[in-house]
Amino acid sequence: MTAIAKTQLLVAPVITEGQQLPELKIPVTATLIATGAVATRDFQKVHHDKSVAQAAGTPDIFMNILTTNCLVNRYVSEFSGPLGRIKKINIRLGAPNYPGDEMTFTGTVQAVQGERIVLAINGTNSLGPHVTGTVELTFESQEETR
C-alpha cells in the first residue's frame, strides 16, 4: 500500500446498501498462523508446533481465533479506509485454517442506517467457510478517542 501523503485530507468512501466489497485472498501459511498467534500473545502450541497439533488430533497447526478476528478487521478497514471506525465484530467460526490453504474474503454492505454501516463478511477456504459474520462501522470523524 502506498503511503498516504500526510497533508492529504482523508476522505471516506461512498458506501451504499448492497455494494460488494472487493475480494481479498489470504494465503494461509505456517508463518501467518505462527506469527499471528504470537503477535496476538497466544502461546498455545497447537498454533505454532506441528507435532503438538498432530498429537492433539489435527493434521497441522491451525489459525487462532484472535488472528481470524484481526484479519476480518484488516479486510474491513482496507474497504473503509483510515476514517472507518469499527464498532462491532460478530463472527461465527467454521472450518480451520491450515497451512497451504487459501482463504478468500468476500463481503456485502448489508445496511446503511445514517452513520451506522453493517457489513456481512465471509472468509472461505478449501474446507468451507472459516469465518462468517457481521461488522459494524461508522465514520463519525469528529469523535475524539479520549
Binding site: 485530507l9 482523508l10 499471528g36 496476538t40 488472528t67 478487521n73 484488516r74 483510515p82
Partner: peptide
Amino acid sequence: LCDAMGDANPIYLDPEVARNAGHS
C-alpha cells in the same frame, strides 16, 4: 501485530494520519 497480519492501515502505524483521522 500489523506486520503479522499484513495490515497497512496508517491509523495503526502513523501518528500524523491517525490525528488527521480524529484520533489522539
